[in-house]
């Protein structure tokens, strides 16, 4: 009894203290430091490329003690990232300075496709572009397909029964799928899954015929010899996959990259923005991040501030054109 009372008193005391200290630091906000754990929103499902990268950044931050408060990853994959974007748009008060999001290209496509969400990405706070991810065309080794021409022939023969698995609706994977369908006169059926990890598994389990996964998502299966890359959607061949020709070499110049950026919500204070920009610049320079970039065939330099915002605006208009071409908007 007494022990329990004690515990209760101690807990209540701790809660009161926590509350007091919270209100106190609210007042002194000059040189920004997070006052509470930072919500690290991930715009995709667990196990995908964005998720793995976010968790890596989180662990780098913890390991090098770059932040006084922990970064807590929260996956918000719903509706091709719409859930995450709405969450960011609706943050208010202290949360505006304690929320950052790992984003990908659905950052452009989802608001373009769903104007009713009321999201304007130019209002978001640029923190840092950590990398640009690359895309490859993958098939299962069991299919016996060894080159791109073989893929085109097989997909053409199968018609709409050829299943291309990808992440989300009208996102990166579907844009590339539509490019292939249009350019090579194919009729592949695109099936969306939550997260690239799941997509990679569907291919390895022969539940899908092809994917356009990022290297980081397929690496495990590729190294085990389960899946084969047939083409790279990049300007130059990737060092890791020297046998996969670029689309340019195959006769149709097409390069497509995915940003791996960190953004803050609209209305983040300038002090907080400066703090997170400096923090992620440090993350970018760490040995672990640089190693990850090499291992997973990532492109792109660190961008922040207005340079990052300009990059977003350029990419947004490119995606607007692509979406119009496929009739999504």
């Amino acid at each position: 009894m007494t022990t329990l009372k004690k515990t209760v008193t101690v807990t209540l005391g701790a809660m009161v203290l926590a509350f007091l200290s919270f209100t106190q630091v609210q007042i002194a906000a000059a040189d920004f430091e997070p006052k509470k754990p930072v919500d690290f929103v991930i715009m995709a499902g667990k196990g995908g490329g964005a998720d793995k990268m976010a968790r890596l950044m989180q662990t780098i931050i913890e390991k090098h003690e770059l932040s006084g408060k922990p970064f807590v990853p929260i996956n918000k994959p719903g509706g091709s990232g719409a859930e995450a974007l709405i969450h960011m748009n609706n943050t208010s008060g202290a949360a505006q300075d304690h929320t950052v999001m790992v984003t990908l290209n659905s950052f452009y496509t989802t608001p373009l496709r769903q104007a009713n969400l009321g999201i304007d990405i130019s209002t978001f706070t640029p923190v840092g572009r950590m990398a640009e991810d690359t895309f490859l065309l993958w098939v299962n080794k069991d299919s016996g397909i060894t080159d791109f021409d073989g893929f085109v022939a097989a997909a053409k023969a199968a018609g709409e029964d050829w299943i291309m698995a990808g992440t989300g609706k009208a996102q990166e994977d579907q844009l590339i799928t539509d490019f292939l369908n249009r350019t090579y006169d194919l009729n592949m059926t695109y099936v969306p899954y939550k997260g690239g990890g799941r997509v990679a598994k569907e291919l390895a389990g022969n539940n899908a015929h092809s994917t356009v996964n990022n290297p980081s998502e397929q690496l495990g299966f590729y190294e085990a010899g389960n899946t084969v890359p047939l083409a790279a959607f990049t300007q130059n061949r990737l060092d890791k996959f020297p046998d996969a020709p670029t689309m340019g070499e195959l006769g149709n110049e097409f390069a497509y990259y995915m940003q791996r950026s960190v953004v803050g919500p609209p209305g983040m204070s300038a002090e907080a923005a400066a703090y997170y920009q400096a923090l992620f610049a440090k993350v970018f320079e760490t040995e672990e991040w640089q190693k990850y970039r090499t291992d997973k065939s990532l492109y792109g330099d660190f961008l922040t501030g207005d340079a990052l915002k300009d990059y977003w605006m350029t990419e947004r208009s490119i995606h607007e054109t692509m979406l119009k071409e496929i009739g999504e908007i």
């Binding site: 667990k46 196990g47 998720d51 793995k52 968790r55 890596l56 989180q58 662990t59 780098i60 390991k63 990853p73 996956n75 672990e288 990850y292």
Partner: peptide
Amino acid sequence: TAILLGGMVI
């Protein structure tokens, strides 16, 4: 296990 996975990467 998603968090454990993140740990394994680092």
